[in-house]
């Protein structure tokens, strides 16, 4: 014997008023979140790489040896936007990673560490590729 709620819901389903969303939609949603995370981490790695390259090209210890002029040169040419970009993308990456699958079960620290380690590995990789 069906109760009232069951009858109403089954009637809505059978009449087509309520429809099941297709499986591919959920698959696309899941993959999109993972893709956004990967994109954030990759772009963060590129941004971090530009800061590393600046460090290697300018060699701050040598430049600062030129006194005030060296200091000014360093402050003027420092890639602030790249550094800010890398930090912002890392934050977005951490936020996105916590939304993939059952990552909500992981602690913020482990999510932060995973994202940071992957970013560092990619930064080293990109640096080698850049030559």
């Amino acid at each position: 014997m069906r109760n009232k709620t069951e009858e109403i819901i089954l009637e809505k389903i059978r009449s087509g008023e309520v429809k099941m969303k297709p499986k591919w939609r959920f698959e696309v949603e899941k993959k999109s979140v993972a893709a956004v995370w990967l994109l954030c981490v990759a772009v963060a790695a590129v941004s971090a790489m530009s800061v590393v390259m600046f460090w290697q090209i300018y060699n701050p210890i040598d430049v600062l040896g030129f006194g005030e002029v060296g200091q000014q040169l360093l402050l003027e040419d420092f890639p602030y936007y790249w550094l800010a970009g890398a930090i912002i993308l890392l934050v977005v990456g951490v936020w996105t990673f916590s939304r993939i699958g059952d990552n909500y079960k992981k602690s913020t620290m482990s999510i932060l560490l995973t994202t940071a380690v992957i970013t560092i590995v990619l930064t080293i990789l990109f640096r080698f590729v850049a030559g």
Binding site: T5, I9, K19, M20, K23, R25, F26
Partner: peptide, 18 residues
């Protein structure tokens, strides 16, 4: 409450492929 239960179950059906 009954309305909310119904909405929950309908939403459950719509999203069950997830």
């Amino acid at each position: 409450v009954e309305d909310l239960v119904q909405e929950t179950l309908i939403s459950g059906y719509e999203n069950i492929q997830g």
